[in-house]
Design a protein around this nucleic acid. Structure first.
Length: 271
DNA sequence: ATGGTTGAAAGTCAA
């Protein structure tokens, strides 16, 4: 069977619920992982997702900030939200697809929303950057303690880091810009490799191809200047590596009316 | 070097 998983930082799920259900109607991934839903649980648009066929839902949100959700056509057996860095800031959700999903074994889906980190790339001067680095360390500790890649697993999310040279429009110009500084890129790369994760997009589309999932709202013409960054990622455990068939970045979504600044990234696996 | 935009929300903060 085919399994498709989409990750999308939606920047308010309530504002863009129509756009999201249009996307689901057209592309129909089995599972949609959202970040930055900015919505308290009691206001999460659960009914709209149910109507679209995504009746299995796990979400955790806050008023105005953060928030992650996983909505699925396939049933999942368990869900878990970690309070990263000891805060109640709704930046993680895991679900486990059971045998009912058709796979040979359970598949865990880990959805992360790593802090953006503010503007100054110095943890001594910028508490937000310190938080981002602490969050990365905590994912590293989780890799060691829980060994998530010992089982079939997919890690997705807005990791807010563009790790490689061709994940940004200008490597040199972004070396001191939060999201592409050496401390961030080397830490993320260490987490990925030590954790036993494979970067799905780069497995199929290696450098030097430019790959972007985010374009700033501040550009006069995002499409013409094309100053993008690849901040959104899909990682696979070894067991799922051989099943990867496709990864797509839906660039056109950045041109939709009142878009998110991130576009959906979708991986297709053949289980 | 700076400023540029968006969302939630009603100030301003976060991104």
């Amino acid at each position: 069977m085919q399994l498709t998983v989409t990750s999308w930082n939606i920047n308010s799920v309530r504002l863009r619920i129509g756009m999201v259900t249009d996307f689901l109607g057209r592309h129909a991934p089995d599972i949609l992982c959202l970040q930055e839903t900015k919505t308290p649980d009691e206001q999460f648009p659960a009914k709209a997702f149910e109507k679209a066929g995504y009746v299995h839902q796990a979400f955790i949100g806050q008023k105005g900030y953060n928030g992650v959700a996983i909505v699925s056509k396939l049933p999942f057996s368990t869900r878990d939200a970690m309070a990263m860095c000891g805060r109640n800031d709704a930046r993680h959700m895991t679900v486990v697809l059971g045998a009912a999903a058709g796979a040979a074994a359970d598949i865990a889906i880990h959805n992360f929303y790593i802090p953006a980190g503010g503007d100054i790339p110095d943890p001594a001067k910028n508490e937000k950057f310190a938080h981002k680095l602490a969050f990365l360390d905590e994912i590293g500790a989780w890799n060691v303690a829980k060994r998530p890649t010992d089982r079939p697993a997919i890690l997705v999310g807005d990791l807010n880091i563009a790790p490689y040279e061709h994940d940004v429009w200008s490597h040199k110009q972004l070396l001191d810009v939060v999201s592409h500084t050496p401390i961030e890129t080397t830490t993320l790369e260490r987490l990925r490799s030590e954790g036993g994760w494979t970067d799905a997009a780069r497995m199929l589309r290696p450098e030097p191809e430019k790959l972007y999932s985010w374009w700033s709202y501040r550009a006069a013409d995002w499409e013409a200047s094309d100053r993008g960054r690849r901040l959104d990622h899909i990682w696979l455990s070894d067991a799922l590596r051989p099943t990867l068939r496709d990864v797509t970045f839906l660039r056109e979504a950045r041109g939709w009316e009142r878009p998110s600044d991130h576009v959906p990234v979708t991986a297709t696996l053949e289980l």
